[in-house]
Design a protein around this nucleic acid. Structure first.
Lengths: 183, 183, 183, 183
DNA sequence: CATGAATGAGGGTTCATTCAT
DNA sequence: TATGAATGAACCCTCATTCAT
């Protein structure tokens, strides 16, 4: 059934192109008409592929989540020492700062817009996936350490959003290294 | 003779009571009618004290900022060793986690809703004030260290928002201590 | 009872100062707050003297009407020939063009805002008073002639409103003279 | 495929049906909701065709203007003597009194609601078009004479509005004839 | 008498959503 | 499958009016 594949492929393509839009304008600030216009389709078409705005947003969140985890699970090849792994994590954050900030904003919006149990569970699950990916890539086990690294990354992304010129990601990551590896 | 009301005092009182509302519902998600209802006043009264929704939001942001800086500048009395200061910071974060998370969300909303140069400048200034307060209270000077601590706090607050049950603030702060004070 | 006199005097004074305001901004376009501000009193005071906005407007209309008729009934001393009287009417229109235009606008607004039988009757009565004053001052009797002169004046005022630079009142009145006095 | 609607045609149709509404209720007195209800469409539809209330009003004004000038430029076939032309003008005014009164009211509203230079220029232009049409149809040249006839018509319309029962258009026009053609 | 804080109905406008084509 | 005209609830905001002081 090639039709279904086409349909799903088209759907994903639309989702991908929504990502930046939602990150920039926010859930409430972005209208279905606007989305349609930016994607070059009518609102009718949007409703053909998605049941509604919340549905579209939720699917997009799921989509980013998958994309992100996939990318995060690959930044360090196995067998490297911790210091080197931390360096690679640092490179990853520096390179993906913009899109990770966007993803964070969307997660926070998701938290607000989908405040039911399912939404919360999805967010927890997502956080866990991130933590898991970091744990695996850094080859660390202590959940508090992972959580701390996670905090650190989230904070860097937040500062990056609020004051992009002032945040020196590299210098900051160095400090984490100190904490973990010792001096 | 007019009704005896201190205009500015009343204004501030309304602002204070908006804080949680905006943090929970977000700028776009919170309607003036809803604000009025929650505060127990009519929309007309709201417009009597504030020129409009953006104005109300901006004033509220300024108000939190002042409140927060004031609180943050007092968590550690002078003359204590760094380890003790970090402990006090940790206590401060633990105690104020909820309201600080709210403030962070509002800052991020502000970033989206007031995207002009003045808004951005205000956010940078606010971040600087926070950094300054932390620097002074911890008696630290290296801006990168301050920024890193800032990242750390912001990340804890973000995780606290997304997954309140899972974040052990105390355990995480311990790690920062290790990085700064050594083991 | 000097209090009552004071009260009425104050009321009339406020009415007088409303006139231009209503003419310029229109009934719906002028708010009670604005009236208060322009007159230097609070809205409360306005409601102390007038039962409400419609009442204020109606009283003001009555007030202009009285003023206007009084002025119109005096432009020509008795005993002059028709040609001279027409000249004096012309002078009167030229001098009072602005305030007469305002009065006309207000009459038209009154027609819209007070569409009940009493309002309509008041407008007819007012028109009759004007016609009567013109008839008496020009010493003419044919109601169609009076009505024609009335039309003429109203039309001049309308053109004066819509295109103040282009209307040469004197030249136009000359034509009426031709019609009435012959050449 | 989209619903088959000629956007511009639909727009004009809505404009035409707004005309009487605005004339009767005035700009400020007529709400978008009311317009929608009277035209049998939702407010959403109104905003689908017009950018807003001012835009709708302005387009309607332009529309009447075009309609009126077209009608006015055809009341007298060429080659008739002045007296006959005046008779035809009289017939025209008698027949179109109601719609011309409406147009005049709308012009006056426009004068108040669009007080900027462009609005004023448009009104002047409109007056000029009317004067031009009259000049051409009556085969007259003296601008003051045209303006006087214009005044006369405007005044008749004004009286017609304020006191419809009392104005004998025919009798009044006779007087203008006397002035122009002589007795 | 005078004030202006307070009200809430109703204004213009937007926008998710539906549906005839 | 795709379109965009159409809907109407709900938004922000204004304003005539009331009333405690």
């Amino acid at each position: 059934m090639p039709r279904l594949v086409d349909h799903d492929q088209r759907r994903e393509e639309l989702l991908a192109r929504c990502f930046e839009l939602f990150a920039r304008e926010g859930y409430a600030g972005l209208t279905m008409r606007r989305i349609g216009k930016e994607l070059g389709v009518s609102t009718g078409t949007l409703y053909h592929y998605f049941a509604g705005k919340p549905e579209l947003f939720a699917q997009m969140f799921q989509w980013i989540r998958t994309q992100d985890i996939r990318a995060l699970a690959e930044f360090a090849p196995p067998g490297l020492p911790l210091a080197r792994r931390l360096e690679l994590l640092q490179d990853f954050v520096v390179q993906h700062a913009a899109s990770m900030s966007h993803a964070l904003r969307i997660a926070l919006e998701f938290h607000r817009e989908v405040p039911d149990a399912a939404g919360r569970a999805l967010l927890r699950e997502t956080l866990d996936d991130y933590r898991g990916a970091i744990a695996q890539q850094l080859d660390l086990e202590d959940p508090q350490v992972i959580s701390a690294i996670m905090s650190f990354i989230l904070g860097i992304l937040t500062q990056h959003t609020l004051d992009p010129e002032r945040v020196d990601v590299r210098a900051q990551v160095k400090l984490v290294e100190l904490a973990l590896v010792g001096r």
